[in-house]
Amino acid sequence: MNILLMFSWPFMQRALVAGVLVSLCAALLGVPLVLKRYSMIGDGLSHVSFGALAIAVALGVTPLYFSIPVVILAAFLLLRVADHPRWNSDAAVAVMSASALAIGILVISRTTGMTTDVDSYMFGSVLAMSKADVGLSVLLCAAVLALFALNYHRLFAVTFDESFSRATGLKADRYNTLLAVLTALTIVLGMRMMGAMLISSLVIFPALTAMRLFRSFRGVILSAAVTSVACFCVGLTASFTLSTPVGASVVCVDLAVFLAACLFSALRR
């Protein structure tokens, strides 16, 4: 009874719609990202989006309009770094994350002060999504899903073997960029609710769980999508009934499912 009642609140409806869409996109993009060893890029982007959000609030701009271009730019930069043979990409991503975080915190402390705002940016808030935010989320998530579906086979080829794809005339850079831009969009959209510190787990956990359970690429993609959406719904419900922060609840559900999948695959062997 309680569970059905919770969706009579408009803010919960908004959280559900936006959250399900973002979880779905994050899971789909997460599989190629994890397989390409780009997991850290998701994490780096979430820190950059925190910095961008802080600056947007300080300037009085609508956060999404400001964050999206900044994070997409950062995604380009991180890809360049990750593929550059002479740069230490781990270190570059770590430096970028810490710098963006530091800048964000400085800006906040000079403007609104270190109040509950900071807490909600870092760890998310179920109240964060306005009606306009949800509208934009639906639009962008639809775009992410469509682009992913249309380029599915090519994304697979580039993820599995970039050298072969290049040699046979596929523009591998184009698909890497597509992946990074779509990830950037997803992270910006999900960050308000999930929190900057926690959003990257939405990208990584479902992919890891699915890879434990399935053998085919398609199986992994589909089960990651299902796992991610299901974990979000359970996490949101738990957060409502137990009055816990939504981001942390969802991540804990993801963790539990991942551990269960590990156990299952160990027993199967």
């Binding site: 090519r154 080829a157 046979t168 085919s216």
Partner: peptide, 25 residues
């Protein structure tokens, strides 16, 4: 082209059929 295998490929979840088909792209 048969490139050198990467470390990431060795634990890649994809069926043989999926891999071979990607040559037709």
């Amino acid at each position: 082209y048969l490139p050198q295998q990467t470390q990431a490929q060795r634990d890649f979840p994809a069926t043989v059929y999926e891999v071979v088909l990607s040559g037709c792209l």
